[in-house]
Design a protein around this nucleic acid. Structure first.
Length: 584
RNA sequence: GCUUCCAUAGUUCAAUGGAUAGAACAAAUCUCUCCUAAAGAUUAGAUCCGAGUUCGAUUCUCGGUGGAAGUACCA
């Protein structure tokens, strides 16, 4: 629709003023509700060409459009330099048919790898991880919908001092406790020992009046060294405990609806990273200090110096990321690499990009750091030490329970079997959580208040799900009256009201929104779009009846309209990783 | 100290340089013999401060103020 207007305006300007304008100079936007018309052309950019006032220019172009494409533009008005166009009903009905038309797919699908989640194996996932996982999963679906092949990947930070702390605490005070014996989820069990280590270590430090360097910490370090040497006892313990954690993570991932195509483990990549750094050192890209540590000098790039290997030869975060990147590009013909990692790592990825480039990886320069903001509590950041961490499993469970209770209070599940009621509650509870997180611009920090439960009314996931369920309900009823709708003899065109037109207009925007979301890596655009479409539909639903429309032609048109809305909502919410219930 | 990011109703969030800055929650009021009231409608309420760029700035630039993150042998 817009394309037709844009090219017609280009022709108009060529004819009227003899000048060429580029398509992007023609600004077409939806007409604001308070004015008459559907689409608006902004005339200001053309005033230099027309050399007349905004009003005259608008009038001239409007007049031209009305004459040259009368099937499309039936009327116009000009207000303060904005040319408002009235578009014909037939055009809108046509447009409705094209809403879900698949976009032309290019033959070559670039391969995009998206890394997200990336947990440590010493504690369960919390709300910050939830944001990461939801963003990563949604971004993957969006990028895929935009015509790319996507590989979802995860790097598990399974080695290092952190897991040694949990291992040591378990060894000392665990009495052989297992997930089975304790009934605890594996990741929570390990998390408890991590906390226990921290507590015991603090007690020890306080008792000794020493700082960080307690006997307990030294023991943990020794364990790490033994791990690196491949000590079978330590390795065995490590494997057993990590497996407990993975089982726990898998449950959480499954609950969140998140999955990966390929998982990497730091324990399998850090040595490669080390090798690459040492090779870089040989090639003179890096330098060694007197204490044996290896560094990269980034001062020429406006940054500082970066540690790559500790003086004891062990590797750091950056080393591992270099190794992982190398393995990934060996495994897949990646065209683009996207890292979904919090904005606290902005500096890290700036450096990683430069280092990879220096090491000769052509893709290093173009890596994308999808940098999202922190989830904060009303009092500030979540702190595990202060026990203010919002646990992912608890949160998901609470959301589903809330959804179930709300549904019962509204006596929605009177004729619904318990099993289905539970399934609906799962979809709705998760829908509320996911929408709550994804509707916010990923780059910004967001606030979560554990005191107030996430809403089910207003601008929420359940609001959209509810509207979808209502449309599905109408469709089920319509099927029952299909004889009435079948081969109808009264062919003709429906006369549309303004609500219907603005709904179609909204529907037409869908493909563009997906494209933009993919280009800007911004799932919140889709969330906000789905909300606006839903709101628009609810107003229509309230004001006009679909099943008892005045004429058969109109009824069929409205059914198509409602069906299209439900399809777009289903697809849009899918891109957010949100499931839609057929009824609720 | 230095670097980066952020600042919009009481609160949580929107707004490719475009018209009178949109929603939701919370508050007040109305609508279920009507396709599901998890809905719809009405009322009240905001761009941190100061310059600049231009037909036009919440948006771009500069300078303040306030907040967050990072700043290398933690990941």
């Amino acid at each position: 629709m817009e394309k037709i207007i844009i090219s017609a305006v280009q022709t108009a300007i060529k004819t009227l003023y003899g000048a060429d304008v580029e398509a992007r100079q023609v600004q077409v936007q939806n007409t604001r509700a308070e004015f008459q018309g559907h689409l608006t052309v902004v005339t200001f950019p053309f005033l230099r060409i027309s050399r007349t006032g905004a009003e005259q220019t608008g009038e001239a172009i409007g007049e031209y459009l009305k004459r040259s494409i009368p099937d499309v533009v039936t009327d116009f008005n000009v207000i303060k330099g904005f040319l408002n166009l009235v578009i014909s009903d037939r055009c809108w009905v046509n447009a409705l048919g094209n809403v879900m038309a698949p976009a032309a797919t290019s033959e070559e699908k670039p391969l995009v790898m998206i890394e997200f989640s990336s947990p440590n194996t010493n504690k369960p996932l919390h709300l910050g991880h939830v944001r990461n996982n939801l963003l990563g999963e949604s971004l993957s679906r969006i990028v895929k919908a935009c015509g790319n092949d996507v590989v979802k990947t995860n790097i598990v930070n399974d080695r290092g001092i952190h897991i040694c702390k949990s291992m040591l605490a378990w060894q000392k005070w665990g009495n052989g406790e297992t997930p089975e014996s304790s009934g605890k989820k594996g990741d929570h069990l390990i998390g408890d020992y991590y906390v226990l280590f921290d507590r015991k270590n603090k007690e020890q430090a306080a008792g000794l009046g020493e700082g960080e360097d307690t006997p307990l910490m030294r023991e943990a370090h020794e364990m790490l060294v033994r791990w690196e040497q491949g000590d079978p006892e330590i390795r065995g313990l490590w494997e057993m405990m990590n497996n407990w954690v993975y089982e726990g993570f898998d449950e959480t991932y499954k609950a969140l609806g998140v999955s990966f195509d390929k998982i990497y483990y730091e324990s399998q990549t850090y040595l490669t990273g080390k090798d690459l750094v040492l090779k870089g050192l040989e090639d003179g890209l890096f330098y060694r200090r007197d204490d044996g540590s290896v560094w990269a000098d980034l001062t020429k790039d406006g940054l500082d110096e970066k540690l790559l290997l500790r003086s004891d030869g062990t590797s750091v975060y950056m080393t591992q990321d270099i190794g992982t990147a190398n393995l990934r590009f060996k495994d897949f013909p990646i065209d683009k690499m996207i890292y979904v990692v919090g904005n606290e790592q902005n500096y890290h990825f700036q450096v990683l990009s430069i280092l990879l480039d220096r090491l000769g990886f052509r893709w290093g320069k173009d890596l994308v750091h999808f940098s999202y903001g922190m989830v904060e509590l009303p009092n500030g950041k979540m702190k595990s030490r202060e026990g203010t961490v919002v646990d992912a499993d608890d949160l998901v469970g609470a959301m589903i329970d809330n959804a179930y209770n709300v549904s019962r209070e509204l006596s929605k599940n009177a004729d619904i079997q318990e099993e289905e009621a539970r399934e609906i509650a799962r979809k709705v509870g998760l829908g509320a959580l996911k929408y709550f997180i994804l509707k916010v611009d990923a780059r910004k920090n967001m606030t979560f208040n554990p005191e107030e439960s996430i809403d089910f009314n207003g601008n929420t996931g359940p609001f959209i799900q509810y509207t979808y369920a209502r449309i599905r309900s109408i469709m089920r009823k319509a099927e029952g009256m299909s004889a009435d709708l079948g081969q109808d003899v009264t062919e003709g065109e429906p006369e549309l009201n303004e609500k219907e037109i603005s709904l179609i207009q909204k529907l037409c925007a869908y493909q563009g929104v997906v494209k933009q979301a993919g280009k800007e890596y911004n799932p919140s655009l889709i969330a906000n779009y789905c909300y606006e479409l839903t709101k628009e539909f609810n107003q229509f639903y309230h004001d006009y009846s679909i099943l008892s429309a005045e004429t058969t032609v109109l009824r069929r048109f409205r059914l198509t309209l409602a069906e299209t809305v439900s399809q777009v909502l289903l697809e849009g919410m899918y891109l957010l990783g949100i499931e839609m219930p057929e009824r609720m």
